[in-house]
Structures are given as structure tokens and as C-alpha cells.
């Protein structure tokens, strides 16, 4: 039951893009076409979950026992950068088809603040999913990370669909491109606010 609450809250209620404002750059940057949006969402899903697993273990077994939590920011970003590189190398060898599908999106993910953001949220914020506020354990963290990433993919794919339709309409000259995209995103965020009473 608790996992279900985590999943619904991370995907709909606290959607990472539309209510927490993480990962906006790729959200605006690669949402012109539905196919690239799907590719990017896949890559982000994969990296967020993996990065959360590694940074969680790093925090619990290295940083906390040694009392060097202040190195969190530096340590996490290095781990994420190294991880993205490693994922690239491994994928190239093991699954060339997936590698070419994700292609250019993988290196971009290092500077996607959703990845570092989720890694930091998981180890610093207390959650209360229906019960006492507590820090997440490993399984909860992974469920949270994966569902956040699914929420990211959902917002991205919906938004790409809207933008593909927008491209066919006549938009006032000054609004072309990013401004109209931002305004549509605002309306989408309003729609997602409807979920806020859910959990």
C-alpha cells in the first residue's frame, strides 16, 4: 500500500517537471518530436534509477559513517558523471540497439538536474506516505526514483504530443518557439494540479 502511495504521489501529485521544476532544460529542449521525447525519457528513467541506487549506498555506507556529508554535492555529481560514462560504454558493448536508440541523450543526462535532484532528495528529505515522517530506505528510494522517472517520461511524452500539434498551428510571431511552449506547459501544470488532493 505504501509503495502505491509513493508511486502515485511521485508520478502525478508531485510530478518532477510540472510541480518540482527539475529537468526543465531537456523538457523544453527535446520535446519537439514525440520519438526523441520517448528516447530521452527512456534514458532518464534508466539513469535516475541507477544513480539513486549508487548515491544512496554511497551516502549510507561512505559519507555518513565518515561524517563527510558536506562532500555530498561534489561526490554525487562525480558519481553521476562517471556512471553515465560507464552506462554508455556498457550499453555500447551489450546492447548496441538500445545504445543507438538512446544515442545523443545519454551524455546530456549528466547535467540534467532531475538526476542530481532526485539523488539529493532521497537522502536529505523526510517523507510521510500515510504514516510517520521518515527517511526512505533503499527499496522505497528505488521505487521513488523509478516512479519519479516515469512521471518525467509521462510529462515529456504528453508535452511532445502537444508541441507536435502546436507546430501545425499559426502562432503569433513573438510567441513562436519557447514562449508558447512555456505557456502550454503552464496550462499542463494547471491540469496536473487537479491530482493534488489524491494523496
Amino acid at each position: 500500500m505504501e509503495y502505491l502511495i509513493i508511486i502515485i504521489s511521485a508520478i502525478f501529485v508531485n510530478n518532477i517537471v510540472l510541480s518540482q521544476f527539475l529537468g526543465i532544460c531537456p523538457f523544453l529542449g527535446v520535446s519537439n518530436k514525440l520519438s526523441t521525447a520517448v528516447g530521452m525519457s527512456g534514458a532518464v528513467c534508466f539513469v535516475i534509477t541507477l544513480a539513486t541506487l549508487v548515491t544512496y549506498l554511497l551516502q549510507v555506507y561512505v559519507l555518513a559513517p565518515l561524517n563527510i556529508e558536506f562532500l555530498q554535492t561534489i561526490a554525487f555529481i562525480l558519481v553521476i558523471a562517471a556512471l553515465v560514462q560507464m552506462v554508455e560504454i556498457v550499453l555500447k558493448k551489450v546492447s548496441p540497439s538500445l545504445y543507438s536508440a538512446l544515442g545523443i541523450f545519454l551524455p546530456l543526462i549528466t547535467t540534467n538536474c532531475a538526476v542530481l535532484g532526485v539523488a539529493l532528495i532521497v537522502v536529505t528529505k523526510e517523507f510521510s506516505f500515510g504514516g510517520e515522517p521518515h527517511m526512505l530506505n533503499l527499496v522505497e528510494s528505488l521505487v521513488y526514483a523509478l516512479s519519479t522517472a516515469v512521471g518525467y517520461g509521462l510529462a515529456m511524452v504528453l508535452f511532445a504530443g502537444i508541441r507536435e500539434t502546436l507546430a501545425l498551428n499559426s502562432v503569433p510571431k513573438s510567441f513562436k518557439g519557447v514562449p508558447i511552449a512555456l505557456i502550454s506547459a503552464g496550462i499542463m501544470a494547471m491540469a496536473f494540479m487537479g491530482f493534488s488532493g489524491l494523496v
Binding site: F21, S174, P179, A181, L182, I183, G186, I187, A189, M193
Partner: peptide
């Protein structure tokens, strides 16, 4: 709230361009 951020930024960019 969240939607206002997107809306206001969108309109401000248009204004800045003009």
C-alpha cells in the same frame, strides 16, 4: 503556484523580445 511560473516566464520572454 507551479503553473504561474511557466505562464509568467512565457509572457516575459515575449515582452523582452519586443
Amino acid at each position: 503556484l507551479a503553473p504561474g511560473a511557466f505562464l509568467v516566464l512565457g509572457y516575459l520572454i515575449v515582452l523582452f523580445k519586443k
